[in-house]
């Protein structure tokens, strides 16, 4: 088992947008991506060693000094009070961005990945966007299973991290079916979406990713979306006799509550 091909090492991230589906980061957001890798250029090298008995006595002193200015400093003071040599580089641009930076918004995406999808599936790829540096591909629900299979086999998105839904009752097709994929070989994430109408069904993804079993049951439980080919589509978290689908936006909590109070307590609910 130890040497099988699935034993992958995804621990070295490609520099920059690990979630961007291979696209370069948006140019207008300089501060958000690098996770403070540039901070403290000098110290980590020596901090890394950490022998068990590393300076037991005097370690307390250097550790205490950075905390000293902390006590009087008001928490929301925007400027880092007297940034030391270590914090100088990253601290300077910090306070500025939140105020002036353009707010993040979805942008159209057209990279190699999307082009490969379009070459293969044509009109079934409805839209590709980049939101907060995360790639999203909206596909036709009819091709949901085929495109998922392609993602796993050809594009190496071998891990279905999550499958869920969102309800937009005012839209013509009210449900978003959302699959968050991850690729171990590429260390990338990708989000697949499909729009579903109220009475439409989707093909089950269990043949592609067995994890979809419980996830689809939960979607059925919460949204009432049905999956064709699911072997065991029952409620997951709620009791079987539950009425309605709670995560739909038009789910009526009050009526349910009053009915429950009436039935179980035999009184009028005061709500």
């Amino acid at each position: 088992m130890a040497d099988d091909p699935t034993k992958k090492d995804a621990t070295t991230p490609p520099p920059g947008g690990t979630e961007a589906g291979g696209t370069p980061p948006k140019s207008s957001e300089p501060a958000a991506v690098p996770p403070a890798a540039s901070a403290q250029p000098a110290k980590p090298a020596e901090a890394v060693k950490l022998p068990e008995t590393a300076k037991p006595a005097d370690a307390a002193k250097p550790a205490a000094s950075p905390a000293a200015p902390a006590a009087p400093a008001p928490p929301t003071a925007a400027k880092p009070a007297a940034p030391g040599a270590a914090a100088g580089a990253p601290a300077a641009p910090k306070p500025a961005p939140p105020a002036k930076e353009a707010p993040p918004k979805p942008l159209p995406l057209d990279n190699e990945l999307v082009q490969r999808f379009k070459a293969r599936f044509g009109a079934s790829i409805i839209e590709a966007t980049l939101d907060r540096k995360q790639a999203i591909i909206l596909v036709a629900a009819a091709q949901w299973l085929e495109i998922s299979k392609y993602c796993r086999d050809e594009e190496k998105f071998d891990y279905l991290a999550d499958l869920t839904a969102v309800d937009w009752p005012k839209r013509e097709k009210r449900f978003d079916l959302v699959a968050n994929l991850y690729s171990f070989p590429k260390n990338e994430r990708l989000r697949l979406k499909a729009h579903l109408g109220e009475n439409e069904t989707a093909r089950t993804l269990i043949p592609v990713w067995p994890v979809a079993n419980w996830l689809e049951r939960e979607i059925f439980d919460m949204f009432g979306i049905r999956f064709d080919g699911h072997p065991d589509l029952r409620r997951m978290l709620l009791p079987e006799e539950w009425v309605g689908y709670p995560l739909r936006k038009d789910y009526d909590i009050l009526t349910q509550d009053q009915a429950w109070v009436k039935e179980n307590l035999g009184i009028e609910s005061g709500q």
């Binding site: 901070a39 403290q40 110290k43 980590p44 901090a47 890394v48 950490l50 370690a59 250097p62 550790a63 950075p66 905390a67 200015p69 902390a70 400093a73 928490p75 929301t76 003071a77 925007a78 400027k79 880092p80 009070a81 007297a82 940034p83 030391g84 270590a86 914090a87 601290a91 910090k94 306070p95």
Partner: peptide, 10 residues
Amino acid sequence: QAIENIPTGA
């Protein structure tokens, strides 16, 4: 490693 060097500031 982290407590060795907690940055100051906000």
